[in-house]
Amino acid sequence: MIAPVPIALTVNHERVEALVLPRLNLADFLRDHLSLTGTHVGCEHGVCGACTVRVNGDIVRSCLILAIQAENATVETIEGLSDSGEIADLQSAFHQRNALQCGFCTPAMLMAAQDLLLTNPDPDRDQIREHLSGNYCRCTGYHAIVDAVESTAHARLERAG
């Protein structure tokens, strides 16, 4: 029998300690152990992008990281970004532009879009599409998502003056 292993990490600014089996991936840890179900599990092999979270500031696929690999890491999920207000404008733009229908891809789409806007505050539409190309949406056809990200970028630039 393989025994559970203790891990300690920070999730959405809270210290978390748990006992996990080595095979447990970070997405399942967040969902099943911490009840942070905004991180979605789609393909479980890194293709759909629905499980995107931040680890130490970088977006990653949480289905392709073991929970034990996140030992001492700082993890931020959609719940963290949403509660802090960091992406309130982006969420509002998604709402206004109808950039979601079923909503399954939306949390990860927001994570990836925010990642782009932090590194490139004025992306063109091709750059937005490229950065979101690892996040599948089966409802919208993407145009509305690109619109929402673009309008958020413009609004932030205006606010920044």
Partner: peptide, 9 residues
């Protein structure tokens, strides 16, 4: 190579 989230790891 793949996508930004994968290139980060």
């Amino acid at each position: 190579v793949a996508h930004p989230a994968i290139r980060n790891r």
